[in-house]
């Protein structure tokens, strides 16, 4: 599909023979991507459920453990991720109006912001490692209440942010591919489905973080049990 678009900018060549029109083809692709995202909602949904169940069971442990996260770093990283969502949306828009150089520019910005987020996340993980807050043999939640159950919080913290980061690493790989294709001029107003669908994926990953941030960093901030 992509190669056709490069060789022959004529729009009909981008429509596969089993589709009526480019619009129908695009609707089908969009729906396919959304169905995939629904499976992703299920995937993350299970982890969110585990979080709620254990927070309900051990509120004191969860409250004191979540206060070990760094509020400012979390908020700053959320800001970085939202910026990357904006640049991604602008990349899709540039493709739709046929500004090739802008597609490349906005994809590179998205890549850099995504990389920044992952870098900050790595710093946070390292910080947790140094402070013995990784569940396992050397685990020690200093000054925590109900410390015996705090590994549950950290297991969910690493599980959920880790799965989120994995999605971002996959995303970074796809952006690199998209940048290479965009530089070749593969995407234009008539056909830019990969950019658009990747945008959906990237925004979805952003949404997961929009919920992880309050649950892991915020909701027990002011309520450290005495």
């Amino acid at each position: 599909m992509a190669s056709h678009a490069v060789e022959d900018p004529h729009v009909t060549s981008t429509v596969q023979h089993h589709f009526e029109s480019a619009d129908q083809q695009k609707d089908a692709s969009t729906i396919g991507m959304w169905v995939f995202l629904v499976t992703e909602v299920m995937f993350f949904g299970g982890l969110f459920l585990a979080y709620f169940v254990y927070r309900q069971a051990y509120p004191a442990a969860f409250a004191s453990a979540s206060n070990k996260t760094n509020l400012l770093i979390g908020a700053a990283n959320t800001t970085v991720l939202i910026c990357s969502s904006l640049t991604m949306a602008l990349a899709v828009r540039s493709a739709a109006i046929g500004k090739k150089n802008l597609i490349v520019l906005f994809l590179i910005l998205t890549l850099l912001l995504g990389g920044t987020f992952l870098g900050v996340k790595a710093y946070e993980y390292h910080d947790k490692w140094v402070h013995h807050e990784v569940p396992g043999h050397n685990f020690d939640c200093e000054g925590c209440i109900d410390a015996g159950h705090t590994p549950l919080f950290f297991a969910l913290y690493f599980g959920m942010t880790g799965l989120h980061a994995t999605h971002m690493i996959v995303g970074v790989g796809i952006i690199l591919f998209l940048i290479a294709q965009a530089r070749k001029g593969a995407y234009g107003p008539a056909w830019h489905t990969p950019v658009e669908l990747f945008g959906l994926y990237w925004h979805f990953v952003d949404i997961v973080w929009i919920f992880l941030f309050p649950l892991l960093y915020l909701i027990d901030r002011s309520a450290v049990p005495k």
């Binding site: 979390g74 908020a75 959320t78 939202i82 941030f213 309050p214 915020l218 901030r221 002011s222 309520a223």
Partner: peptide, 11 residues
């Protein structure tokens, strides 16, 4: 984002 961050510090 910053509103919710601030509110989290209010009990």
């Amino acid at each position: 984002t910053w509103v919710t961050t601030y509110i989290s510090t209010v009990d």
